[in-house]
Amino acid sequence: MLSKKFGTDRAFLFWMLAPASLVLLVFTAYPIFNLIGLMFSQVELTEIGFLIQFTGLENWK
């Protein structure tokens, strides 16, 4: 429907989709990538915050 109306105006479609894509990226993609990172790390709660140390496959053993 949109592409019919706006023809090949891809820039318009891009900017229309950009806010939703950005929200999706921030609230979905980022936590997933963060989780993947944590799956391979040792995380310790310290007085100054989280201490994240990459441990490879240690958690998987």
């Binding site: 989780l35 944590l38 799956m39 790390s41 040792q42 995380v43 310790e44």
Partner: peptide, 10 residues
């Protein structure tokens, strides 16, 4: 054990 917990969630 936040790392291991994350692994289980993953």
């Amino acid at each position: 054990e936040l790392g291991y917990g994350s692994l289980i969630a993953g």
